[in-house]
Design a protein around this nucleic acid. Structure first.
Lengths: 237, 237
DNA sequence: CTATGTCAAGAGCATTGCTCTCGTTTGTGG
DNA sequence: CCACAAACGAGAGCAATGCTCTTGACATAG
């Protein structure tokens, strides 16, 4: 019942796609703050008020783009993971991290849209929450395989996860994470946080005059954090 | 020659201060994207064109606010560090991390201004680079004291810093860091990156439905990263 | 005292997001 | 088959915005 209803519905779906495509093009050029509904309408040869039939406000258009962006980076991570041999856990981890960074460098404005300042005053709506977790699921999948292979060896010498994290850990374990300890789950979140922190720092210019070879430094950090989570390093010290 | 020149200059400096103050108030309310030069002018009882005598463009006002914000968080970190006993290295580290997070939670819009999307298309100008490093200097100071006390013990089992980082490390060692290994410097940068990544994730809503007790999780992460850098943990495992 | 440069004020331009009202087109139920 | 309602594109219009330009008042320097 969803495919090809009336001609009107098909036209509508098509137009929504075109509007989003034009908006993405413009987003890539001028950034989120400069995205103009009127300009999008102009590019499509329609009048501005017509666009409002499809997106009730500029923020709704932005939200659609946010969801697409989350989905896009999620897909990139999934592809990167799938391209690795399943048993090369650290290779998969690095590939995923690299995929995030590469995607961000290739789509800086879209990255800024999803990990920079939430636009004007608004809070990211609920519907962005699911696509936002695609990358996390992939990362958790690597941990799952590591656990299944019995090679998950989180280093000692670190403090235990706070007791207040137990409930979160239980829920996450049920949803995405393998049956590993609270410590590992929290460390995985810490590593996930770092990846995006590093990408944001690089993209927003915080590494200027600090780190030159950012790709190598990123790789190094990703490796260190993977070790902290418990993934086995390749071979060398 | 800088203090109290002509009445005109004094009036000018005073007005610049007032404009910035009004802009900060407005920034705290409506965020960077909603900051309006005209509204600032209204609040001050002047006409919009008059403000342009003091800030040639809206972005220049924003830049001034960015510098102030960097300075503000830098000062907060310095205060937090100074309030700790010098020999309590891990306590100082945690206090600094906490200061960053607390400042960000108290000034979300200003934090978003300096660590979120750089406004429209523009790249943060050079003059923001010095104030942006105040917090880093404090963190590096802790490492310096740890090194001097001979308690800096970076854990083994992690990969060495990439060779391409050597030049950066040398420069940083000269500028802010104590004479420690490239590995420690890079790990410190990784930890520094994480702190802001975690604050950004928390502030921008990425921990929704993921981490509940964010303060405790942040503390835990800061501790783990401190350990990775080489700071000695209090006592327990 | 005069001349120069600074200043606030106002009008004005182009642009934006968004609303409202028109006819027109399209799909559907009688 | 046809009439009615919903969806639609177009256009005008409103309240804002950033920014420019001109005008006239003022203070300061010579």
């Amino acid at each position: 019942m969803s495919a090809s209803r009336t001609a009107r519905e098909r036209a509508r779906a098509e137009l929504i796609r075109e509007i989003k495509a034009a908006a993405r093009r413009q987003l890539a050029e001028v950034g989120a703050a400069g995205l103009s509904l009127r300009a999008v309408a102009r590019e499509l040869g329609m009048v501005s008020s017509a666009v409002y039939r499809y997106f009730p406000s500029r923020d709704d258009l932005l939200t659609a783009l946010i969801i697409e962006a989350f989905d896009d980076v999620g897909a990139a991570v999934e592809r990167a993971d799938a391209a690795c041999p399943r048993e090369d856990l650290i290779g998969r981890w690095l590939a995923c991290c690299r995929a995030i960074r590469d995607w961000a460098l290739a789509h800086p404005h879209e990255y800024a849209l999803i990990h920079g300042t939430p636009v004007p005053g608004y809070a990211a709506p609920e519907e962005t929450v699911v696509p936002a977790s695609r990358d996390g699921r992939v990362l958790a999948g690597i941990l799952r395989d590591a656990e299944a292979a019995g090679v998950l060896a989180p280093p000692a010498g670190l403090p235990p996860a706070p007791a207040s994290f137990a409930e979160d850990a239980a829920r996450l374990r049920e949803q995405v994470f393998p049956p590993v300890s609270d410590d590992v789950i929290l460390r995985a979140l810490i590593a996930w946080t770092w990846v995006y922190g590093a990408v944001s720092f690089e993209l927003f210019g915080m590494y200027r005059n600090v780190i030159t070879d950012r790709a190598a430094a990123f790789e190094h950090g990703a490796l260190c954090l993977a070790r902290m989570v418990g993934l086995p390093l390749p071979d060398d010290a």
